[in-house]
């Protein structure tokens, strides 16, 4: 019956490996270990461009809280934070994304889909009031948008204790928070939130500083700021002016 090629199988493979479960297990782990080690190990010793990383700082305590909301709501499932070095992308979004910008992204938020636009350069693109209205009713600022409204961010409050725990964790993981933030993270967060809610009053928007939307706005407005600092330093170094 066996007239096919299998009539004369490689006997050594059968004798040495297929009859021995333990050896097969070891070899199959060895097979996946090669690629894993070659690709991952160098990434653990990644060094950033010194002239770039000096402009990158950890997110402030309030931005950390906003980032946790961004993660909780799954924003990354529709929005990337990754501008590719294409002309069409730098035209649409701005400067392409550098590795050093992501240094304090734990977890990373590059994303894999653009159901909505990239957000890596969104900080400073719109004012706080725009974000406030957009998150409440996306179609009020972006007609035709398919983004759902996020009304609960206007009722729920961020927790100062959670911020303290988060910042403590990130410090343990090696993030160099400046002393004025690390000393009392929630106090720093409240100060930054207060400034945002005060600023919104100019647009006739009354919002308490402890609302989640304020933390999220703080985070969104931060995105891309380090890139701007890098670009300014680059321009200065080249003596462009």
């Amino acid at each position: 019956m066996n007239t096919n090629k299998a009539a004369n199988p490689p006997d050594w493979h059968r004798r040495l490996i297929e009859n021995k479960g333990g050896l097969m297990a070891v070899l199959s782990v060895a097979a996946i270990a090669v690629g894993s080690l070659v690709e991952l190990v160098p990434m653990f010793t990644l060094e950033f461009e010194p002239r770039e990383i000096e402009h990158v700082t950890p997110y402030t305590p309030l931005e950390v809280a906003g980032r946790d909301i961004y993660i909780r709501e799954g924003c990354y499932l529709c929005h990337s934070q990754w501008v590719r070095p294409f002309r069409s992308e730098t035209l649409r979004y701005g400067e392409w994304s550098r590795a050093s910008e992501y240094a304090y992204d734990q977890p990373f938020q590059l994303g894999s889909r653009r159901i909505g636009p990239d957000l890596h350069r969104v900080g400073g693109k719109y004012n706080d009031a725009w974000h406030y209205e957009h998150m409440k009713d996306p179609r009020s600022t972006s007609p035709g948008s398919i983004m759902p409204p996020y009304k609960w961010l206007y009722d729920a409050s961020w927790s100062g204790d959670d911020i303290d725990a988060s910042v403590a964790g990130l410090i343990t993981l090696g993030q160099p928070f400046p002393q004025e933030q690390a000393g009392n993270p929630q106090a720093h967060a409240f100060k930054q939130a207060k400034a945002i809610s005060e600023g919104l009053k100019e647009f006739d928007i009354e919002v308490s500083a402890d609302k989640e939307i304020v933390a999220l706005i703080a985070y969104l407005q931060r995105l891309g700021q380090d890139s701007k600092a890098m670009a300014e330093a680059r321009a200065a170094a080249e003596g462009g002016e």
Partner: peptide, 24 residues
Amino acid sequence: SLPVSFTKSYPIYSGMTDALVQWW
């Protein structure tokens, strides 16, 4: 990752290293 509460943790990797570990 490092847990900071019962429901939240931060990965020990950051940035592009975290991205590569994730897509690996």
